[in-house]
Design a protein around this nucleic acid. Structure first.
Length: 721
DNA sequence: GAGCACTGC
C-alpha cells in the first residue's frame, strides 16, 4: 500500500527522509525529462540553433520545449562567452513556474544559474545564465541596453499568442540582431529594402553616446541567436518575417480528447450549455466539467440556473458543485476551483477565457465550449474600446479542448481512464469556418504607448516600422497626434525631452504626463496615488448578493468631486490602516490585516496590492527623474485643476438630456453606473476610460470647470458662446 | 444601472 509505505518512511530520521526524497525525486525528474518528446531531438535542435541565426520552433503543448531547450543550449555551450539565454513569456505566472521547474530539474536554488524577472520581482543574480521573463520586461530592458548586450540567445515563447508585447519585441529583436551582426563585420548595410530600422538603432547610439558605439566596435558583439517558439497551426508567418528562417517541428504529447459537435446550430447558448452540463453529470463517468462562458453576468446566471435545475432532480443526483472563476473575482474565491471535489461529487467550473491559458485547473475531464468569447476591440477614430462577443478562433478552440487534462491529474498516464471529452456547442462545418488564429492585439488597441516606446528606442518612423503585421495606419497617426498634444513629440515628429521622460515610466502615456504636470502644480504626491489606482483593474468589488453592503462601504470613501478623489481616499485609508498595523505587528501580519480590511470594505485586495506596488515603483522613478514630490494637502481644487490640465484630451460636457458629449470626438456617452458621479451629473467632466458595452460609458470621472480647460489647454479649448 | 484576458528596468 503506497500510503503505508509513506507513513513508515516518514518515521525515519529527518536527514534520511530528505536524502531519500531527494534521490527519488531526482530520479523521477530525470526519467520525466528523458520521456519528453523533445529529448529525442536534442542534438538535432542544438545543431539547428548553431547553424541558423534565427530558428522557428513549432512545438505542440507537452513537447517540453519551454523547459528543455534553454537547458540544452546551456549544456552545449551557448553561454560560454558570458552571454545569457533569455526566454520571454507573455504571462508572469508562466515565467515564474517554468523557472522554478527548470531550477528544480537542475537541482539548484532558484536565482542562481536559473532565474526569472518580472515587474516588481527580480530573482536573478550575477550567476544567472538561464533567465525567464515577461516579454514586456525585455522591452523595458531594451530602453536601457539597446543591443540587449548581455544575451547570447533570446527565445520568444508562445509567439503565436501575438500579444502586443510579443509583436513589438519581434520587430525590435530583428533590428538588434542585424545591428549586432554588423558590429562584428563592421559593414554598413547597403540593403535599402529593410535598412530603415537597423540604421535607426545605430543612429540613436551614434547621437546619444559615442562611447557605446566605439565600445561596440571594439567589443564586437557576438551575434544574437533568435528562437521563436510557437504552437501555431502555421509557422509560415514567422518564417517569412525573418527572411525565410528555418522552421522545425517538435512533436507534442497531449492527452487524448474526443470532440463532439452539435447536429444543428444552437440558438440559445446558455440553454445548450445547461443541457450539456446535465447530460454529462447524469450520463458520464467521473471527472469535472469546465464550461467556457463570456463574462461574469453569464457565469452568474448559468450558476443560478444550474442550482434551480438541481433542485428538481432526485436527492442522489444532486451531487454537483458549481465554481465560478473570472479575473475580477477575489483571489480567495478564485482559489476554490483548485479544491478537490468531495467524494462522490462532481465539480462544474464556470469560467471566462481566464481558464484558457492563465489558470490551469486539474481534474477536468469534460470541456463545454460554446465557441464564443468576449473580446476587446478598439476604434482608433473615436478612441473607444468596445467589448463585444465574437466567435473563437480555431487556435482558441484547440486550446480550450486541451484543458481536458483529467488523466494528467489523477494517474499521469494516458489511456487508463479513457479519453477526455470536449463538447463544442456548434456544428463541425462551423468550426471549419472559424479563423485560424485570433486577430493580433496590435490591430485592436490604442497604440500611443507602443509609439512612444519605439520612439524612445530610436525608431522615429513608426509608420514604416517593420512590424510582423502592420497596425492600422490611422491608429498610428492618431497615437502620434495625441502624443503631440501631450507634448511628447515635437511638430516634426521627434521625441521631445518630456516624451523621453514619459517613456521611462511604466505607465500609459497620459498618466506619465499627469505626473510631470502634477510636479509643476505641486500635487505630485497625490497624483502618484491617483495614477497608481487608475492603472489597476477595478478596486471595488460588489458581489450581486451583497450589493447594498458594498454600496454602503463605498460611501465612506466617496468624494462628491469625483472618482479620482475617491480612489485617493481609498488608498490613503488603506495606507493609514496598514502603517498603524505595522507599528504593532510584523509586516506579514499587517499585510494579512490589510487584506481583511479590504474584504470588510468591499475592496479587491489583489487590485489594491497591485496599486501599492505600482505606487512604490513610480515613486522611485520620479525620484530618479529628479522630480520633487510635493503635496497639495487638502487643496482638492488644485488637484482637480491638475486633473483637467492632465486629462484635457478626455473631457465631456453635459447635454440637456443628461447625457454627455465628448469635447474632441463629439461622441455621446453616459457616466458609468459605478462612478460616484453617476447621479450628480456635473456640467463638465474629465475621464480616463471610454468603453462601449450596451451603451458608451465613461469611467473614472471627475468634476471640473470648463474654464479650466480654456485656461490650461488653450490650443484645444476656447471660451464658449 | 454595470465589469473578456494579459502586461510594464
Amino acid at each position: 500500500m503506497p500510503s503505508m509505505a509513506a507513513n513508515k518512511f516518514s518515521r525515519n530520521t529527518h536527514q534520511n527522509q530528505t536524502k531519500g526524497d531527494f534521490v527519488s525525486r531526482k530520479q523521477m525528474i530525470e526519467q520525466q525529462r528523458k520521456n519528453l518528446p523533445i529529448a529525442a531531438v536534442e542534438r538535432r535542435l542544438v545543431e539547428e540553433v548553431r547553424n541558423n541565426d534565427t530558428l522557428i520552433i513549432v512545438g505542440e503543448t507537452g513537447s517540453g520545449k519551454t523547459t528543455q531547450l534553454p537547458q540544452y543550449l546551456f549544456k552545449w555551450g551557448f553561454c560560454r562567452d558570458g552571454g545569457i539565454i533569455g526566454i520571454t513569456q507573455p504571462r508572469r505566472v508562466a515565467a515564474i513556474t517554468v523557472a522554478k521547474r527548470v531550477a528544480e530539474e537542475c537541482g539548484i536554488p532558484l536565482g542562481q544559474k536559473v532565474g526569472y524577472a518580472i515587474r516588481f520581482e527580480d530573482v536573478t543574480s550575477g550567476q544567472t545564465k538561464i533567465k525567464y521573463m515577461t516579454d514586456g520586461l525585455l522591452l523595458r530592458e531594451a530602453l536601457l541596453d539597446p543591443y540587449l548586450s548581455k544575451y547570447s540567445v533570446i527565445i520568444v515563447d508562445e509567439a503565436h499568442e501575438r500579444t502586443i508585447h510579443t509583436d513589438v519585441l519581434l520587430g525590435l529583436l530583428k533590428n538588434v540582431q542585424k545591428a549586432r551582426s554588423k558590429s562584428i563585420n563592421g559593414v554598413v548595410n547597403t540593403d535599402h529594402n529593410n535598412s530603415n530600422n537597423g540604421h535607426a538603432l545605430e543612429e540613436r547610439i551614434d547621437n546619444q553616446n559615442d562611447g557605446i558605439l566605439k565600445s561596440c566596435q571594439v567589443k564586437k558583439y557576438n551575434p544574437l541567436k533568435l528562437i521563436i517558439m510557437s504552437a501555431s497551426l502555421d509557422a509560415r508567418v514567422f518564417s517569412e518575417y525573418f527572411g525565410g528562417a528555418k522552421a522545425v517541428h517538435v512533436q507534442g504529447r497531449q492527452f487524448p480528447v474526443d470532440i463532439f459537435y452539435t447536429h444543428k446550430p444552437e440558438t440559445d447558448c446558455i440553454d445548450a450549455a445547461l443541457i450539456t452540463i446535465f447530460q454529462i453529470h447524469l450520463e458520464e463517468g467521473p471527472g469535472d466539467v469546465l464550461v467556457f462562458l463570456t463574462g461574469q453576468e453569464e457565469i452568474e446566471s448559468v450558476e443560478r440556473l444550474i442550482h434551480e435545475r438541481l433542485r428538481q432532480l432526485p436527492e442522489c443526483s444532486r451531487k454537483l458543485l458549481t465554481f465560478p472563476i473570472f479575473s475580477s473575482l477575489p483571489s480567495e474565491k478564485q482559489m476554490r476551483v483548485f479544491m478537490p471535489s468531495p467524494a462522490g461529487h462532481r465539480k462544474v467550473i464556470l469560467a471566462t477565457n481566464i481558464a484558457e491559458t492563465s489558470v490551469t485547473i486539474p481534474g477536468i475531464r469534460y470541456v463545454v465550449d460554446p465557441g464564443l468569447v468576449k473580446a476587446r476591440t478598439y476604434d482608433p477614430k473615436m478612441g473607444v474600446d468596445s467589448l463585444i462577443i465574437v466567435t473563437t478562433s480555431k487556435a482558441q478552440a484547440l486550446q480550450r479542448r486541451s484543458r481536458a487534462n483529467f488523466l494528467n491529474f489523477y494517474s499521469g498516464r494516458a489511456g487508463r481512464d479513457g479519453p477526455g471529452k470536449c463538447y463544442r456547442l456548434y456544428q463541425e462545418s462551423f468550426f471549419e469556418k472559424l479563423t485560424d488564429s485570433t486577430l493580433p492585439e496590435i490591430k485592436r488597441c490604442d497604440l500611443s504607448n507602443v509609439v512612444l516606446q519605439l520612439k524612445a528606442l530610436g525608431i522615429d518612423d513608426v509608420i514604416n516600422f517593420d512590424f510582423i503585421e502592420k497596425p492600422d495606419r490611422t491608429a498610428v497617426v492618431n497615437s502620434l497626434w495625441s502624443l503631440y498634444l501631450l507634448g511628447a513629440v515635437t511638430e516634426d515628429n521627434k521625441l521631445s525631452d518630456v516624451g523621453r521622460q514619459m517613456a521611462r515610466l511604466p505607465l500609459d502615456p497620459v498618466y506619465s504626463k499627469a505626473l510631470i504636470v502634477a510636479s509643476q502644480f505641486g500635487c505630485l504626491k497625490e497624483m502618484l496615488i491617483c495614477v497608481a489606482m487608475l492603472s489597476v483593474e477595478s478596486i471595488f468589488y460588489a458581489p450581486r448578493e451583497k450589493l447594498e453592503e458594498s454600496r454602503n462601504a463605498l460611501k465612506s470613501f466617496a468624494s462628491l468631486e469625483g472618482d479620482h478623489l475617491t480612489l485617493l481616499n481609498v488608498y490613503r485609508a488603506a495606507d493609514e490602516f496598514f502603517q498603524k498595523n505595522k507599528m504593532v505587528h510584523s509586516e506579514e501580519k499587517a499585510e494579512k490585516n490589510l487584506r481583511k480590511w479590504c474584504k470588510d470594505n468591499y475592496i479587491n485586495s489583489r487590485s489594491l496590492k497591485h496599486a501599492r506596488d505600482i505606487h512604490s515603483q513610480i515613486v522611485r522613478n520620479v525620484e530618479q527623474m529628479g522630480l520633487r514630490i510635493t503635496s497639495c494637502e487638502d487643496d482638492t481644487l488644485l488637484l482637480r485643476r491638475c486633473l483637467a490640465a492632465s486629462f484635457f484630451l478626455k473631457a465631456a460636457m453635459k447635454q440637456p438630456d443628461g447625457a454627455y458629449r465628448v469635447t474632441l470626438s463629439g461622441l455621446i456617452v453616459q457616466i458609468h453606473p459605478s462612478s460616484v458621479l453617476f447621479r450628480a451629473k456635473p456640467e463638465c467632466i474629465v475621464f480616463n476610460e471610454l468603453v462601449h458595452t450596451n451603451h458608451s460609458y465613461v469611467r473614472n470621472v471627475s468634476r471640473i470647470d470648463y474654464l479650466w480647460l480654456v485656461e490650461l489647454a488653450p490650443n484645444l479649448y476656447a471660451v464658449q458662446d
